[in-house]
Design a protein around this nucleic acid. Structure first.
Lengths: 205, 205
DNA sequence: AAACTATAATTACGTTACGTACCGTTTCAT
DNA sequence: ATGAAACGGTACGTAACGTAATTATAGTTT
């Protein structure tokens, strides 16, 4: 009695307008740039995009999901993952790049959105993954090269190591207790590498 | 011609009801506990507190400020800043405490609020200061003791060092890419102290 | 004791945005 | 040609906003 359920049934009826979808995302992005991600309303997007509200709700459940989708569409600039002979220089360069991107206007919006979204929606997860994993996985690769080159300890929990490097950036962005600039980036990397402890203490624990 | 301006002029007219203010804050806090900080509405608070809306607006400009005030009122448990002979043990204990507090329900709400508030209002700043500085300044004191005891380098930028320790916690809380528990706390402290670099690398930069 | 003044609770109001339902129209596959 | 689904547009009921007006109340001042 069972039937085959076509996983992607042939589309019947009028297909969705790519043009409308694109206009929606662009309008949403522009409005966020003007008024910030918190003030994005579906009505304003519909009006600017020349689109009916139902068309928007057909794609996204609420303004927040739309906002994240719009930010994801206009992707953050990815650092040029160029490798030099010195993995430690590469790391420093990459962290500086991350800092530069996220302390800019768009980067701040992205951080804000990421922090504000409490929902466990698909879009929300995708958003977090996209934002976090981009820089983080690049850092992982670099650290591994640095390990191979003998510049970084091999007995590390790599995830902890990555958190140690990228955590301070978002911490400052969100708490706002100090500036986030290139100097901070190099400070992080160098301090993390050297460690806080004295040499005499290194062997004890 | 100048006159003395009384910094706290004697209150005229009917004094503000402390009872009303307390009821408002408590109702706001309870409602946040039930529905999360994002869904707090002034109307619901007024209804539950048995208070008129204007009374609420007399104290706070909007729901977000009220939310932060309510969270601030019910202060987060402060760690017992007890000092032992080993500052490094103290540090580890304190970071574990911070992790425990902020990974709990109330701590998560606080983190959420902190991240979501973009306004530069007074309440917003006070909120950030309260949340951040509590643990941070305690950590600073401990680190300084550790320096005196010779367990921690003295050529550090203390703010960077503190970010290195506390940054990863909030990073994980907000990005949600890994668990935040006591084990993570000890990992952070120990890794930060030892550093990521190999000994051979320590002298080079 | 009487006048004064700011707060209190209540009610009403205009505004904004939400998310949904319905419309007639359009654009495809069959 | 027929039918299905998306389209733009409009209208709707709901929720919450933040403000104004009203009357009562609680302290201070004279």
């Amino acid at each position: 009695m069972s039937r085959h359920v076509d996983p992607s049934p042939k589309p019947r009826g009028r297909p969705r307008s790519t043009q409308a979808r694109t206009a929606i995302l662009k309008s949403a992005y522009d409005l966020m740039a003007e008024h910030g991600p918190g003030r994005l309303t579906v009505e304003a997007v519909a009006a600017r995009a020349g689109v009916g509200k139902p068309t928007i709700y057909r794609y996204w459940a609420n303004a927040q999901e739309l906002a994240m989708a719009a930010l994801l569409e206009q992707k953050l600039p990815q650092p040029s993952n160029r490798e030099t002979a010195s993995p430690l220089d590469d790391l420093e360069r990459q962290v500086i790049h991350v800092v530069t991107v996220f302390s800019g206007r768009r980067g701040r919006q992205v951080t804000q959105m990421m922090a504000a979204s409490e929902a466990d929606s698909e879009v929300s997860k995708a958003f977090r993954n996209q934002v976090i994993m981009g820089s983080r996985e690049q850092g992982r690769a670099i650290l591994q090269r640095a390990q191979t080159a003998g510049h970084v300890r091999t007995d590390l929990d790599m995830d902890v190591a990555l958190d140690l490097i990228y955590g301070p950036i978002f911490y400052r962005l969100l708490a706002g207790h100090a500036d986030v600039d290139a100097g901070f980036a190099t400070d992080i990397v160098r301090t993390a590498l050297k460690g806080l402890g004295t040499t005499g203490n290194r062997r004890t624990r």
